[in-house]
Design a protein around this nucleic acid. Sequence first.
DNA 1: AGCAAAATGATTTTT
DNA 2: TCATTTTGCT
Length: 810
Amino acid sequence: MPYKTEFLMLRKRIMENDFLRMNDRQRQAVFHTEGPLLILAGAGSGKTTVLVNRFANIVKYGRAYQSTRVPMLSDDDMNAMRAAANGTASEQEYSHAVSLCAVDPVPAWRILAITFTNKAAGELKERLSLMLGSEQAREAQASTFHSFCAQILRRYGDRLGYSNRFTIYDTDDSRRLMKQCLQTLNINERLLSHKAALSEIGRAKDNLLSPDEYKSQAGKDFRLQQIAKAYSLYQRRLMEADAMDFDDLLYMTVRLFTKEPDVLESYQNRFRYIMVDEYQDTNHVQYRFVKMLSEGWGNLCVVGDDDQSIYKFRGATIENILNFETEFNNCRVIRLEQNYRSTQNILDAANSVISKNENRKGKVLWTNNKKGDKIQVNSVINEEDEGRFIADTIQDGVAANRRYSDFAVLYRTNAQSNAIERALVKSGIPYRIIGGHRFFDNLEIRDAMAYLRLINNPGDNVALRRIINQPKRGIGEATVDKAMRIADGIGASLYDVILNADNYADISRASVKLKHFTDMIENLRKMNQDKNVSLHLLYTTMLEITGYLAMWEQAGESEAGRVENLNELASSIIDYEKNSPEQPDLAGFLEETALMTDIDNYDAGTDSTVLMTMHAAKGLEFPVVFLPGFEEGIFPGMQTILQPEELEEDRRLCYVAITRAKEKLYIIHSQRRMLYGTTKRNLPSRFLADIPQCLKDIHDPSFLSSGISPSQYEGEYYQIRYKKPDRTSTFNIRENAGGGISAANFAQKRSTSTTTASHWKPGDIVCHKVFGNGKILASSPMGNDTLLEISFEKVGTKKIMANYAHLTKA
DNA sequence: AGCAAAATGATTTTT
DNA sequence: TCATTTTGCT
């Protein structure tokens, strides 16, 4: 045999031996390193294992498996190869053989692995460090979309007009800011809720539309025009506050890449291989981001499962994964369909449910595991009965040698947890609820964080407004609103305005109080500059001198938890100081917490049953799973029943839920259920009917769950049941009685105010509420508004936005 | 400015 | 039903 052929053969054998624990398909995915690759990884098919091994393969062997390149070889070399292939090599020989095999191996820092959660990124790093050693793993760029983008923007954000210490606004901050914007714009929340505005703006950012682009797309549609105005103001205020919201992190990064090709190029060059986890959950910007980055080397590997796409409501588009093959030429597709988790019966049930969906790639899971028990379907009388059934079953299981932690209860909505919790408490079953509200969402923690954010970035208006009167300092909303208007007028931050409150007639009445507040903050800011002051000292001092801690301490026994939480935050600051890889500072701490969630610290260690939503359970597995609330109107939910696309999403969610179970699955539906104060009677879920009879073991005193044909779920029966007019009509009455401005009225109001704005001309003498009389020197249109330069009699020349200054002709 | 009473409106939520 | 937000009043 010519040595070249033998070498190639030996190389394959050595590499394959190195990844023996995987099945054929998994190994194909590991070795296919060049070009675009789509891995369709079914539930429980060892996706993370593949990702980690693929990473290791690239570091160790590079593109060797797909290459026919052969190095110059001596006899000693060939002997080492043979020994390595036969498993008889010494350690030295083996590593020599590996180095002969490798073709362009790549250091870990040239590989990018993107996940959605910190938890997934952490897991990946952990498993990489087991495989490659901690040094290599530390270098690896394994991060979430958001943290990776934040990293890029901290470096190059100045090119978009942000500082390198910009603040990251979370959803709550965004909501507050949007509310303020709508108020400024005089947009009634009834006509455009802050929620609707934000979700529309989120969609705009997802489509890479700037406020101006959005505006020109809006055309004459009144509502869209309102949204365009809100978008442009919202974005302006974010920029003035040196802040970005979650969507901005991606949107701005893609804009940066477009605007500054050298930046894009440097990242393209760096990352020779890119892997994206949970690709079915990506949205449009994320797709663009990944596509741009991968255009350098073209080595993009995405892993996902179209059947587990359950985050459409957050902007995920299943099309990204469905169209991957057509978007990326010469794409290789590998399906991982062998499941290592569940029994055959559970998989069959999952397969039969998901097969009812139209919009999917198609995949059939199989397993070598045994058939196992049938799916147990239980009908109960009400939610109390449901809880009792779960509790009893867990106790029976524990009596038969199961652990509490073997059981999980997965529900559709958080509201369902109450009844179950009560039952578990009654039976003395230890349990934990995952999700719900997070530590960092607690009011007192958010307040404390707002103080820290303000110290870090005094331009952070949202933080400032949050705590300026917390504890009560006699600074009311009216004062803050006035100050905000002044700030808008002169293009300064709210903080700057109250810092010089004396200078503004409108708020001078409160100037002593405001001065007291800013003095406090200024002192804290000085402390923060001082390198000898540790972060936790800054924090505890802040709690002291602001009186924030004292406020809760005086609030009595019922608020003791808040004081505890504030102390807990101190320990997490100390934790950060201990573990921070760099010099710990305030900005670093805020960065870390902004992108952190504490669903991350679910540990399977303690022996308690877990309760969580089906969404939160994605990626987890449990020996025994309960799925309560399998009823029409709950799951699928009322809103989804009439929308085919939504229904498909709920069906995918059902698939995710079923495939969490390893051994035993209980599905429960209740005849009656108390929801939002009224008792409803719901039919069993159509998803139950999707599971073939032969897989079900039905425990049902009545006839209801024993196989209803899908046709019975459509039509009038439901119209009557769910569209009963009581609530709807009262809602209408309420709205009419509410005294809101009619759409026509509202339109008129707006248009008059905007037209007057443009009427101001240089030379006009005007009166400003704050600054008094003055003469307009110049006027220039800016966005939707007009920038006026006015020479005031009392305060000199100021630049003012016409729409926000309440000017009158003098 | 600050409080109590009344109204409102409710999936899911990786960042 | 229940938590949050707006309102109406002092």
